[in-house]
Design a protein around this nucleic acid. Structure first.
Lengths: 147, 147
DNA sequence: GTATTTACCTACCAAGTAAGTAGGTAGGTA
DNA sequence: TACCTACCTACTTACTTGGTAGGTAAATAC
């Protein structure tokens, strides 16, 4: 029982949503952490990841903070999670650089590949703006929707 | 980067496929382990899981071994992985018994729920017999197929 | 120029999990 | 009786998760 997406990816996603909801001004991490009820110190270790990827930029000093570098609708959940988690591969067999001598004959490999493509295809269709409350209606009815 | 399916689930699946390919007689774990190139000792720690679930039964003594308890087409990849991995939930938020006070308003929860249902729906459609080489053609063309 | 605010950096830690290994016991068959 | 096979308990090594602690560097306000 190990989860595909850890707190790192989940917190990162919540920070990105938070920034998308405050698009106009710079948001200090302290404020975001309080609003999201996440440890400031822990968030500080996650933010460099989003910054290196060019998803956000941060300015120092008084009045500083973080902000998105692109319009919110230009981010997908898939790319945010792929950066923060390192990989979204469901099994080691599909991980970047992994070589398996059974690959040519393994009967399970096609299943993992299909599973991987299903996961990727879905996560790459969900945009950051799809998770802003006013848009939540678009999710199917098995899911919570905030009206 | 933590994988949804560990070696435990992957090995279990390969053992189940192996048993499906030798449906008529009892297969000693030693033989299966050699054929699959998996540590016998490690497999011994995984088999009780499959036995408790009623997927296989094992008989002691000379000529003993393991065998499937049902016809191979009656097993799905989903149920085998769910038993061995404990859960296939992509995030802790969806794990059995987990309570999150943010659940009612969390904008990311619908995404995790949808992702979970996509994964489950796919894995529950793949049957054990779908992975026996002669049937592998049924996978789509982005995947390896053994003709 | 000083104080303050903020990002940013380095190191550490406790608990848990993954992926086995080692060495036996119990049950059944030839 | 000898052999084979499942089954059980304990241990190990390495790694990951989810943080905490304590600072430094940069920028701004006053």
């Amino acid at each position: 029982m190990s989860f595909m997406v850890s707190t790192k990816g989940r917190y990162a996603l919540r920070v990105m949503i938070d920034l998308a909801q405050h698009i106009e001004e710079l948001q200090p991490l302290k404020i975001i952490a309080e609003r999201q009820n996440i440890s400031l110190k822990y968030m500080e270790t996650i933010m460099p990841c989003l910054k290196e990827a060019g998803f956000v930029d941060g300015t120092h000093g008084k009045g500083g903070g973080y902000r998105l570098t692109r319009p919110p609708q230009d981010y997908t959940v898939g790319e945010i999670l792929r950066i923060t988690e390192g990989s979204l591969a469901p099994v080691a067999c599909l991980d970047n650089g992994y070589v398996c001598e059974r690959a040519d004959t393994c009967p399970t490999l096609p299943v993992w590949k299909k599973l991987d493509s299903i996961i990727t295809d879905y996560l790459d269709t969900v945009k950051l703006t799809d998770m802003i409350p006013k848009n939540m209606v678009q999710f199917d009815d098995t899911c919570y929707s905030q009206l």
